[in-house]
Nucleic acid binder design. Sequence first.
DNA 1: CCTGGAGTTGTCCTA
DNA 2: TTAGGACAACTCCAG
Length: 476
Amino acid sequence: MTAPVIVWFRQDLRLSDNPALIAANKTGRPILPLYILDDINSGEWKMGSASRWWLHESLKSLNASLKGNLCFGKGNPLDIINALLKQTGAQDVFWNRCYEPWRIARDSAIKKSLKTSGIEAQSFNGSVLFEPQITLKSDFTPYRVFTPYYKNACLQNAPEPRHPQAAPQGLNLFHYEIQTLDQLELMPKLSWHKTMQTTWTPGEEGAQEHLAKFLDTGLKNYKDGRNYPAKNNVSRLSPHLHFGEISPHQAWYGAQQAMIANNCESDGAHFMSELGWREFSNNLLYHTPSITRENLQSKFDAFEWQDNPEALKAWQTGQTGYPIIDAGMRELWHTGYMHNRVRMIVGSFLVKNLLLHWHHGEDWFWDTLLDADLANNSTSWQWIAGCGADAAPYFRIFNPVTQGQKFDPNGDYVRKYVPEIAALPDKYLHSPWEAKDDLLAKSNITLGKDYPLPIVDLKSSRERALQAFAKIKAAQ
DNA sequence: CCTGGAGTTGTCCTA
DNA sequence: TTAGGACAACTCCAG
């Protein structure tokens, strides 16, 4: 029997546009597809609960596409791969590169170890449009600002991203079993994932259909509509992209085609720039691995964060008394997702109005988001906290009432996730405490009982934040 | 090395 | 009701 080539799937759970799989197929030898759940090397960035549910579903789908031949392992990848090599006689391992610090460290150690035993490990770029190790400024230092990064390193002077490749036909698959999918124990013990089940379709097929639908119906008016959480103008591709059920190349070129076909070039260009943000985050994390925990701007080390477990709990559970915040946090809890505009509003509220450390937000999102992604999560929390890669004027403090009125003017979003105040007229929906007593009575709402009173005052907490920011400016 | 322009996403006050 | 300016200064980046 011909020895197989091992294709180690990681964050590339798809058959189409998968460089490692395509290269392995070209060897003409049978392919042993492998997935390993690695909770050993991930350290403090062990995958969160919501992500695990998604991963379970995604692996189920990939296994089906591979006709039940996906080999599941759990543990230390090097041990598992070594055992597989021994038992199957395989001489090659192919994979697509990942860019988180702990994965880079792990993978280079594996590559080195395999090499000393005469095994060829080949890695490819499956997951990014522009690889971080080659994306530097002309002085060979990494970019710190998005706009020049995107303009120079993505749009100009950059190698054109590969055009998406079709899935290889007639794969010759090698069957070898270590464990079953269920033995990875990815599914949550409690059944809080029911809403997720009805909201999402993890897996390559679901991802491709999702992209096609977005390009068809959501791309037009994307630039403006993406700000409104009740509209269908955001792509919601993030979990699919994170797990690699779709490649950014497929989204990039798909958008390019669709914007021409639908005559909406500026919308298309804007969507592509959002993919650019994903690249930028990856780039930042690659060159500055400390961003996962340390302030990119070190003057923030002196910032006086508050300690307030009750406020944190209220934020996490969507009980702050600010409807747009509570709607967002409940959307997150129930669906594993939150609209981008609302992520900024709840982030600003946590960090600026409550003065709680951005690590709290980072940790909570890490556990509850289906699209939890180390690069995006760290970069975005630093951005909203003002300590990250941005000019970030310290006075940019979102007002949850103003933002709600502006971006959820008809209250569709708030009423969906905060039904207890749905009867309020639009005028008071984003500020229920301003409603007159008889109106509250008529709407069957007792504030403090059916729905909380605001846990902080906006005006004074804003002032407090401005003072805290002024302090680190002076301290510097 | 120096220089000048620019930096995802806001709010509030005033006229 | 609406539009414009203030809110600071600093760092990044390209030429």
